[in-house]
Simulated scan of single mutants.
Amino acid sequence: MTTNANTKTKATKAEKGKVLISGASVAGPALAYFLRRDGYEVTVVERAPDLRDTGYAVDFRGAAFDVLQEMGVLDEVRGQDTKMRGTALLDATGAEIGQLPAEVFAGELEVPKRELTRILHRLTAADVEYVFDDSINALAQDDNGVEVGFERAVSRRFDLVIGADGNYSKVRRLAFGPHSDVIRHLGMSGAGFTAPNHLGLDRSGVLQQGKGTAIYAFSAADPKSLMVSLSFATDSPALDRRSRDEQEQAVREAFAGNAWETPRLLEAMTAADDFYFSSASQIHLDRWSHGRIALIGDAGYCAAPTSGMGTSQALIGARTLARQLAEASGDHVTAFAAYEAELRPYVAENQAKGREGAAMFGG
């Protein structure tokens, strides 16, 4: 089964139906694993040309470990532990004024996101069709399936479509409405990038907070590299959709006049080839499914990075949806309703944590 030059693998025959998942980060491949195990033919479409190699380290908490264990990759994921030792709190001059324990940022286990993505892809690559460098541009469903249009490939028909494509989910926009209707901004945005480790950090981090700004930098698996986050107060997530030049300019303006290492970090930002920009936002929907289309992870119920629960929520959401489909013998109406009823209290708790974390930043 080949749809374009960037199709990575082939799925075997469908036993329970054909499912299309949009997004190949964490939630998408995790759901693909469980659905394929249960007999579905699964295709994952990803707009990036290949596996994403950017992003900070991700952490795991609570029941997420049970999901990794069930997938048979817990030991492998543990082998990528960053072994962070903690974060020093700095004043405006760079002098240390306190310490935060490792679990504040690293949870119970922290690994580089690119390593988790690679593990999940390797786990599913033999039995799941991955289509990179393409994206959904049309959805038309009826009682028997969903006709899906793509930006590059010819249209195809699936029994179910699942959006696992993040805050600005294409699936959600097409099936549920505009992003502006469901994105709730938490008052902060920021840039992330890799820089040379001129601070000499070793499996440790530094955090410097000002009024409406925060610099967080840490070095984990690669002692030569520094992961940097420059966050600042914003009124909306509008910068997420602007050009890199506009985003960089907004960062420079927010940190203008900051002393310590800020000028050097701003220079490193401009030179970085892995620059990305995002806002702390949550997704709030009255429902997570519409007919044969459903959402998981950040696409359906992002709790914001300030919650520390994004990766765990993605894994737990994927397993919950797959389990409900199995228990309902493929009856998507019953399964989608049960999935939402089971998971909503957990999501509500995590979103409350996300709002609390953003409020702490604001001082």
Rank of each mutant, 00 (worst) to 15 (best):
D165P: 07
K170M: 10
H179D: 13
A164V: 09
P223Y: 02
A217H: 00
F176W: 01
D222G: 08
Y168N: 14
L186T: 09
S169L: 08
S231P: 05
L199M: 12
S243L: 04
G210L: 04
T213R: 06
S225F: 00
G187L: 07
L207I: 10
R173C: 06
P178N: 09
Y168D: 13
S180A: 15
V206H: 08
L226W: 00
A220G: 12
L226K: 00
F218V: 13
R173K: 13
A164C: 11
Y216V: 14
A175M: 00
D235M: 11
R184M: 05
T213K: 04
S229I: 13
L186H: 06
R172G: 06
K211M: 12
Q209C: 14
P196Q: 06
A221Q: 12
A238D: 15
A220Y: 04
V206G: 08
D181P: 04
S229R: 04
T234F: 03
F193C: 10
H179Q: 12
A195P: 00
K224S: 15
K224H: 14
A214K: 11
T213Y: 01
V161T: 05
V161Y: 03
I162Y: 01
V228C: 07
S169T: 10
V228W: 00
S219H: 08
A221N: 11
A164M: 02
R203I: 09
I183Y: 00
V161L: 09
S229T: 12
R203A: 13
L174I: 06
F193W: 08
M227R: 09
I215Y: 01
A220R: 08
A238Q: 13
H179A: 13
G166E: 07
R203V: 09
D235N: 13
V228I: 07
H185V: 07
S180M: 05
F193E: 08
Q209L: 15
Q209E: 14
T194R: 05
L201R: 06
P237S: 14
S236P: 07
D159P: 01
T213M: 02
S180W: 00
F193V: 11
V171T: 10
F158G: 02
H198M: 10
S225H: 07
S229Q: 11
S231G: 10
S169M: 04
D235S: 14
S180C: 10
S236V: 08
G205P: 03
V206R: 14
G190H: 02
P196S: 11
V206Q: 14
F232K: 01
G177D: 08
V171Q: 04
A233W: 01
L207K: 10
F193H: 10
L199Q: 06
A175V: 02
N167F: 07
D165G: 10
G212Y: 00
H185Q: 05
G205R: 05
L186G: 08
L239R: 07
L199W: 03
F176E: 03
L226I: 03
D181W: 02
L239W: 05
V182G: 01
G177W: 06
G166S: 09
R241V: 10
S225V: 07
T234Y: 04
A195Q: 00
A195N: 02
A220F: 06
D222Y: 01
S243A: 07
A238Y: 05
F158N: 04
G210I: 06
G210A: 11
H179S: 12
K224G: 15
D235K: 14
R203M: 09
A217Q: 02
R172P: 02
F193S: 11
G210R: 04
